[in-house]
Design a protein around this nucleic acid. Structure first.
Lengths: 141, 141
DNA sequence: ATCATTTAGTTACCTAGGGTAACTGAAATG
DNA sequence: CATTTCAGTTACCCTAGGTAACTAAATGAT
C-alpha cells in the first residue's frame, strides 16, 4: 500500500479550512484554539509549558497568547517566578471553550457519520504511532 | 470517541516537516512535489488542470511551476491554444521523481513499520470519506 | 465580421503560521 | 557576587495559499 502520506496530507487543507471557518465566528483560529483547549484541560500554564506540550517554539506561543489576551479570552495571573507568564482562561474564554467545543464535536460527528466506530478507532490510534515512529527516526540523526 | 480531528491535525506538522527535510536534498518542497507527481502520473498538463485536480487556486500552481521551471525540473511544451501553458517533466525531472519517490516510500515504510497492514488500509480509506463528507456539507451552504 | 464573454495565466497584495537569532530581565548556581 | 540558565519578547525570515485585478487568447452570438 502506497500513498498513505499523500492521502493524509491532502486531507489537511480541507479540514483546517473548515475548522478555521467555524472558529472565525468567534474571532479565533484553530492554532489559537489549541491554547484555549490546553488551558481548559491542564489549567493555568506558563507559555513554556504550552510550547513544550505542543512541540512548537516559544515565539509561536507568545503570538497566539497575545492575540487571545487582546480578545479577552485569556488573562495573566501572578506567580512567584517573575520570569514566567502564567495564563488562564477568562470567563469569556470559558464560554468560548464550550461553544467551540460543541461546534467541533458536531462537525466531527457529521464528517465521520458514515464511518464505523471501530474504523475510526483504528485510525485514531494510528496517528500517535506514526508520530512516535517519526520521533524515533529523528533520534537516529 | 472524541478528538479525532485534533490527533489528525497534530500529526500534520511533524509529517510535513519530515517530508520537506527529505525533499530539501533535491531543492524542492512537498507542495512542489505534488506537481511533479501529477505530471508523472497524468502526463503533460495545463496549469488549470493541475489546479483543478488538487483543488487549489491558479496562482498557487503558477508559483509552484515557476520554481520547478527555474530548477529545470519542468518544461513548457507548445499546444494549439496559446492561452494555455502545457508543462511536462524534463529528464532531470524524471530522475528527481524516481529518487524522491523512493525516499518517500522508504520513509513511509519506516514510520508505518509497526502498524498492521489492515489497520493502514482502514485509515487509508477513511481519508477520502472524510473529504467527501466535508464537500457534501459545503454543498448545503 | 465584430463585439461581448469566457478562459488561462500572471501579478500584486494580503493572510496564517511558524522558525531562528538576538535580546532583556529574573532566577539559580556555585 | 559573578556566571549561567531560563522565560519571554522582538525582529526578521520562510512557506504556503487565497483574492482581486489584470492581459491575452479563444469562443460565441448577433
Amino acid at each position: 500500500m502506497e500513498g498513505f502520506l499523500q492521502r493524509f496530507l491532502a486531507l489537511y487543507r480541507p479540514v483546517i479550512t473548515r475548522l478555521n471557518e467555524l472558529m472565525s465566528n468567534y474571532g479565533i483560529t484553530y492554532s489559537q484554539w489549541i491554547v484555549i483547549y490546553h488551558l481548559k484541560h491542564r489549567g493555568a500554564s506558563t507559555l513554556v509549558e504550552i510550547a513544550a506540550r505542543h512541540e512548537v517554539e516559544k515565539p509561536t506561543i507568545t503570538r497566539r497568547v497575545k492575540k487571545l489576551m487582546d480578545l479577552g479570552i485569556v488573562e495573566q495571573i501572578l506567580g512567584n517566578d517573575k520570569r514566567e507568564k502564567i495564563i488562564q482562561l477568562t470567563d469569556t474564554g470559558e464560554n468560548i471553550y464550550h461553544v467551540v467545543r460543541k461546534d467541533i464535536t458536531e462537525l466531527e460527528f457529521r464528517i465521520m457519520d458514515n464511518i464505523p466506530e471501530h474504523e475510526r478507532k483504528v485510525a485514531y490510534e494510528i496517528f500517535p504511532k506514526i508520530d512516535d515512529n517519526l520521533k524515533k527516526e529523528k533520534e537516529l540523526y
